[in-house]
């Protein structure tokens, strides 16, 4: 009897979360799964379409190809660069410099501001033709192009924006570095291992679980990136689809052209793609991630 009451008490404490989960997460997700098999323009009722949306995405829509390419390039460039940068800064901060707390906060700041509209707007200003960057370059005699509005450079400005927001993986790297057992490094130093050898042979292998964690989280984040491209291109994905992220294309179809069914199908394919990439990362992790027993 008492156990049963305890059980009820537990569930009653869970109610707020359960309401949120069923009402705001699971419910809409299932609704969007249903909508992905319909034509739905928000104003009229959804019409059943079977697999038509999915077939169009896979076989007929050239813009899907464009957006997938842009997204993959973005993920492949921004994730390694961001992780490398974050690790480098974490290594420097781990040297025990004075005022560490201040630096940590400073370096973390961009990540806090990161996804905000204000920063993306700022980015647009900094990287435009007569923006801050080109003014600086002008001092050293370089006349830079209009970075955000040139199809050959626009994606790079978004990659740079992402790398600049290295704070959260950096903090996690730093915590990981702090936990490495110092006795191994001492033993290695006594045996005459150089700092470089210590890094490649001890630090990096022992840090692989943290690297793996950061890799998975950042990859998922990169696939989902939306705000920077939306703001920097003014929602167009331009110039000439150069910044047409998959998520941005999805948004255009949904809220620009009111093709909710089609957009829902795009969204579910994105979910499947992220799941597949994550599963792949976990599979390969067995061969390179080192867990201490």
């Amino acid at each position: 009897m008492a156990r049963r009451r305890a059980k009820y008490a537990g569930y009653s404490f869970l109610i707020p979360w359960l309401v949120g989960f069923f009402g705001l997460t699971l419910g809409p997700a299932l609704a969007s799964l249903y909508l992905s098999f319909t034509h739905y323009d928000l104003i009229e009722s959804p019409r059943w379409a079977g697999l038509a949306n999915y077939i169009r995405i896979v076989s007929e829509d050239a813009k899907v190809g464009d957006s997938v390419r842009v997204t993959l390039v973005y993920v492949a460039l921004s994730v390694p660069l961001k992780l490398g940068f974050a690790l480098a800064i974490a290594l420097i901060l781990n040297k025990g410099i004075r005022g560490l707390g201040v630096y940590r906060a400073l370096f973390y700041l961009p990540s806090l501001l990161g996804a905000s509209v204000a920063i993306a707007t700022l980015w647009r200003k900094v990287f435009s033709g007569d923006g801050l960057l080109n003014h600086v370059l002008a001092y050293v005699g370089i006349q830079g192009p209009s970075w955000v509005s040139d199809p050959d450079h626009a994606l790079w400005t978004l990659v740079a924006l992402s790398v600049w927001q290295f704070g959260s993986p950096m903090i996690i790297f730093l915590a990981g570095l702090r936990q490495l057992p110092q006795d191994i490094f001492e033993a290695a130093a006594i045996d005459g291992a150089s700092a470089r050898t210590q890094f490649w042979r001890i630090t990096l292998p022992m840090l692989t679980p943290v690297i793996f964690f950061n890799l998975v989280v950042q990859t998922i984040d990169a696939f989902k990136a939306f705000t920077p491209a939306f703001i920097v291109s003014g929602g167009t994905g331009g110039p000439i689809n150069a910044t047409l992220f998959y998520t941005l294309y999805l948004y255009q179809e949904a809220f620009g052209y009111l093709r909710m069914g089609y957009a829902a199908a795009l969204a579910w394919l994105l979910v499947l793609a992220i799941m597949a990439v994550t599963a792949f990362a976990f599979m390969t992790s067995r061969s390179w991630v080192h867990y201490e027993e």
Partner: peptide, 9 residues
């Protein structure tokens, strides 16, 4: 030129 026009929304 196109890279300037591209900033026009």
């Amino acid at each position: 030129p196109p890279e300037v026009q591209a900033l026009d929304k």
